[in-house]
Nucleic acid binder design. Structure first.
Length: 271
DNA sequence: GATATCGCCTGAAGGC
DNA sequence: TGCCTTCAGGCGATAT
């Protein structure tokens, strides 16, 4: 699933591929994937030039010669840069067509992802204001500790809460908690300043690793030319239930937390 | 206000 | 082989 490193990998590739291109047509077959409505989306983006591709947390922001559109890949979204005559891709539900037969295909197997036309900077700011700070940005150890002090919810769920900290998803939350030797159920406000600081460093470390390997390709995530990332070959605990911990040799456990698969080493990460 | 739960949605995997 | 059930999960809406 695309988290901050995966979305940033896509953003960097898209920046090279589609900035300066004008959207000459839009094809779609799933109304729910185009917001606010398909007609408004098409009217908003058609004949507009893409002037930049930015990112906030897991949200891609496409700057247009007039207005914006944003794209959330949710669980299984892919953005593929292809030529019109390239072989079809599976699960494609939106295609932005450019001049010179180039196109951006939005493939989404589970239909959770969406593209949304955003008319003004004010409207965009409203969308972005709900996101908390990003760990890779300018979040200091002190600010991070303050955020964690505000709630007694399990730390793993706090990391996944985009309103508090933006960009962390299930994979990197599991691996960062392992590196910081913190049990996923630990109440956030019970962490010491030193543990909180270690956790922030661990998040930065797994994000940097994720970026270095071009993201983690589970079943769905692909880069813009269809290639897989390789961070999945470097998972520390995510998806590793039953495998032995690299540090102590204990078997990695899987529990459910907030309805999501949660992986940890019961020896290295005690409550 | 904070927290917990539900529903969206479909492909893949496993059981029979 | 084919059908059925279970699992995966980000996030907004709704309930507690």
């Amino acid at each position: 699933m695309p988290e901050l490193p995966e979305v940033e990998t896509i953003r960097r590739q898209l920046e090279k591929e589609i900035v300066g291109k004008t959207i000459v047509d839009v094809w779609w077959d799933r109304p729910k994937m185009l917001r606010p409505r398909p007609e408004a989306f098409v009217n908003g983006v058609k004949n507009r030039r893409i002037t930049g591709v930015e990112r906030k947390a897991k949200l891609l922001i496409f700057e247009l010669s007039d207005g914006f559109f944003v794209c959330h890949l949710r669980l299984s979204g892919r953005l593929l840069v292809r030529r019109k005559d390239d072989k079809p891709d599976d699960y494609v539900h939106v295609v932005l067509k450019f001049e010179n037969n180039k196109e951006l295909r939005f493939a989404e197997a589970r239909l959770f992802g969406y593209m949304q036309y955003v008319e003004s900077q004010e409207e965009l700011d409203k969308i972005l204001e709900k996101y908390g700070p990003e760990p890779l940005d300018d979040l200091t150890a002190g600010e991070f500790f303050k955020i964690l002090q505000k709630t007694s919810r399990p730390i793993k769920l706090v990391l996944l809460d985009q309103n508090r900290i933006a960009g962390v998803g299930n994979i990197y939350a599991n691996d960062a908690l392992f590196l910081a030797k913190i049990h996923p159920r630990t109440p956030a406000n019970s962490l010491s300043a030193s543990q909180s600081s270690s956790l922030l460093k661990a998040i930065e470390q797994v994000f940097k690793e994720g970026l270095k390997y071009g993201g983690a390709s589970d079943q769905w995530y692909r880069q813009v030319h269809g290639e897989k990332g390789s961070y999945q070959e470097h998972f520390k605990v995510y998806g590793q239930a039953g495998q032995v911990c690299d540090v102590c040799g204990t078997k990695i456990k899987r529990i459910e937390l907030g309805g999501r698969g949660t992986f940890f080493c019961p020896q290295c990460q005690t409550l």
